[in-house]
Design a protein around this nucleic acid. Structure first.
Length: 103
DNA sequence: CCCTTGACCAACG
DNA sequence: GCGTTGGCCAAGG
């Protein structure tokens, strides 16, 4: 089974529970490609529309959404997270929502 | 084949 | 806090 990195990334993201988040770096590490955080963003960027993957649960290591503030993508991701009970303090997500231990 | 570009990150200065 | 550097991988020119 020659699983592509893309497949492993999908797999990891699909396991992030509702109401929790993970960083790009954490997802990459879990997928067995440490230091390849950028790849995670690249993979998520080209997801098909109907995808059920919880892409919105992936944020950057600063617990912020990696889209320009106010952009359509930013607003959609924030909205989805709010619906899951994620709490924002300004643009930053409250610490206790991290899915995996970090720092 | 080389170079650049990303929803990135940690280590430095 | 900011800017730089090096690391990873895939896609496109």
């Amino acid at each position: 089974m020659t699983e592509s990195n893309q497949q492993r990334i999908w797999q990891v993201v699909s396991q992030i529970p509702e109401g929790k988040i993970a960083s790009y770096g954490q997802v990459a590490a879990q997928a067995g490609i440490p230091q390849a955080a950028r790849l995670v963003g690249n993979v998520l960027r080209k997801l098909p529309e109907g995808s059920n993957l919880p892409w919105h649960r992936v944020v950057n290591s600063q617990r912020k959404i990696s889209f320009p503030i106010g952009s359509p993508a930013y607003q959609e991701q924030k909205q989805r997270l709010l619906l899951e009970g994620i709490v924002f303090n300004k643009e930053k997500i409250a610490i206790n929502h991290l899915a995996w231990h970090y720092l």
